[in-house]
Nucleic acid binder design. Sequence first.
RNA 1: GCCGGCGUAGCUCAGUAGGUAGAGCAUCUCACUUGUAAUGAGAGGGUCGUCCGUUCAAUUCGGAUCGCCGGCUCCA
Length: 645
Amino acid sequence: MSSPYTLTLPDGSQKTVPAGTTPLEVARSIGQRLADDAVVARVNGALWDLTRPLEGDATLEILTSKNPEALEVYRHSTAHLLAAAVLELYPETKLAIGPPIKDGFYYDFDRPVPFTPEDLEKIEARMREIRDRDLAYERRLVNKDEGLRMYAHEAMKCELIEERADAVFTEYTLGPQFADFCRGPHVPSTKRIKAFKLLSIAGAYWRGDEKRQQLQRIYGTAWFSQKDQDDYLHKLEEAKKRDHRVVGKALDLISIQELAGPGLIFFHPKGALVRKLLEDWMREQYLKRGYDLVNTPHVMREQLWDRSGHLSHYADNMYAAMELDDARYRLKPMNCPGHILIYADRQRSYRDLPVRLGELGTVYRYERSGTLHGLFRVRGFTQDDAHIFCRPDQIEDEIVNCLEFAVDVLKTYGFHRYKAEISVWDGGASGKYDGTPDQWDLAQNALHRAVERVGLEATVMADEAAFYGPKIDVKLLDALDRPWQLSTVQFDFTLPRRFNLEYVGEDGGKHQPLMVHRALYGSVERFFGILLEHYAGAFPLWLAPVQAMVLPIADRHTDYARQVQAKLAAAGLRADIDARSEKVNYKIREAQLQKIPFMLVVGDREAADGKVAVRTRKGGDLGARPVDEVVAEIAAAALARSSDE
RNA sequence: GCCGGCGUAGCUCAGUAGGUAGAGCAUCUCACUUGUAAUGAGAGGGUCGUCCGUUCAAUUCGGAUCGCCGGCUCCA
C-alpha cells in the first residue's frame, strides 16, 4: 500500500514517487516553472486535480496554460467562483449548472428576483474578493444517500445527483460555505484565476427544456492572462463593428421595416444590386452544371401541403391558411413540393435521369419572434434550392457534383476554411426515422464516398439526420474565425413515396427515384449577411455596388471626370462621380467609408494628360496613370471575380 | 414563444427629481474652388415607438402593445 508508484511521463521516461504523491508535487520535482504553470493533470488519460494524490502506477501528464483542456478546467473553476460569489451575495439563490463554453463559461441560477446589470458588477467585485482569499478547490467524496440529504435544499442539484451520481460522488468546495456537486477537476485554488469578466445575463431553461422553469444565466469570459482577455474583448468589438445589421445600414444596403413586419428584408438599390450579382452567378452555375431552372408559385392549395406532410410536420412554422373562393391556400415554406409536381407532371424514363430542378425560391416561414436576427434568421427568404431526382447508380456522382459545387461557392466568395458534417441515423433503433435500412445504407455510403472523392474533411454526426434522410452540411469559418453553416445536401426518402414519384426503368417496370434536396448559399439573405460580415462591408471588386468613384478636385474638372466615368461605364464597370463642391479630402473620406474599391482623382494635371490619379481603398494613393490603362485594368480585375479585392 | 434590457431628430447619443427637449454628424442654403480620410457660416428637422391610465400637467410615473438587442428553445 505504501510501496512507491511508478509514473510514466509524456516523454516516455519513468519516475518513482512515494505513495500518495500529488501531480503538483511531481511537477515541482521536475521544475518550479512547470509547477507554477500547471493547471491540471492527466492521469491514465483522465483529467485529475493537481492536488489529488495519485492512487497507483500511472501515466502522468502535467497540463499547462498552453493546453486547451486546461483552459476549460480553468473556466469551469471560474464558473464555481461565480457561483460562490452569487451565493454569498444572494444566499436564497439555487444552483443549476455552470460549465465552461467556447471563450468562457456560464452558470445558471434560480432566483425569484432577476439579476440586473448592476448586480453583475457587484458579483464580479465579489468574485475578485473571493479570488484574493485564495480558497482551495477541495475535492470531497460523498456518499450518494448522504449527499441527497446535504443537497436537500438544492432541488436541481438533487435531480442531477439522482440521475448522474454513482454510490459515491464528488463535490468541490470553495471555502467553508460553498459546495457544488461536480465531477471536476479544478485548479488548485482561486488565486490561480487571473483574468475574467462577467458579460451578460440571459434566460435559460432548466435542462434546455422550454417546458421547465426558466433560470437566469450569467455569462462570463475567462483567460489565463489579461492580455488574452483583452485580445478576446477586442475581437468582440471588431465583430460588433462588422455586424451585418450595422454595416448593412451604414452602406444603405438593406433595412427591416417595422410597418411591414419583423423578419422581412428590404433590399435597397445597392443591396439589391449585390444580391442580383449573387443570384446571377448562381443561375449561371446552375445552367453550366446541368440544372434546369424552374419557377413555382408562392401560394398553393393546402391539399398539396397535406400530401407532402408539411401540414402534419411543419404547420407550426407555416403562415396561416388564406381562404379563397374554392379552397384554402398556404404560403410556401419550402420549394420541394413545387419541384416534385414538375417532376411528376410527365412520365420519366431512366434515360431522363438525373433530373435537376433548381429555383431561387422565396419561402415564408413563421419563426418565433424571439429567434429573428437581422438577415440571419428571417421570416421570408430565398433559397437557392434544387432537387435532384436520380437512379441509385447515379447518386454518388450527384453528391460529388453537389459538393464540388458547394466548394466552388466557398472559393468564389473568399472562404478558404471549411469542413463537412455528415449526419446519419441511429441505425433504426428509435423508429423515428423514415425510409428502409437499404435506403439509409445506400444514401449514407454515397455521402461517405463522395466526401472522400472530393477530399473534404468531414465529421460524422450520429443520430443527427433529418427524419426523412441523411444529410451533409458544409460549415465555413469567416474572416473572424466564426463558424457558419452554409450548404446542405439532404436525402429525402419520404417525399418520393408520398407523391408516388416514378420513372420507367430499363426493365420496363416502374421505380421510385432517389431525391436529394440541396441548397448552397442556403438562404440568399443569410448568405448576403455572412458576406457582409466576412468582408466587413468591403465587397470584392466584382461584387461592389459602386466599383469606382471619380473625384474631380474642383468644379472645373467635372467635365473631364464625366468622360472618365463614361469610359468606366463603357467597360462595364459601375462608376459614380462625386461632383460636389467639397474638398478632395472630404470626398475621399466618404468614398473610403462607403468601401468603394477604386477612387479616381482628377484635377488639372490629369485632365491635361488624359490620366487619373488612382487610389484604392486598401492601398491608398497609387499615383497618376493613363485613363484607358486604368479602366482596362479594373475591368479585367472585375471580370476575374477575385475574392480578395 | 420564454427571461432580461432597450426604444428621444435620417444616424450616434445627451437630458427632464412630472412643467411639451439638446449636441455632433447627416440634410438644405450661402461663401470657399479645393490634390489623397471631415472648409466655414446659417437654416430646417422631433405629437421623446404606439395606446390606455394616474395627474392641473406625462417624453419623464403605472399598465398594455409593437419593435429592437442579449440569451434560451428552434433553425436556411
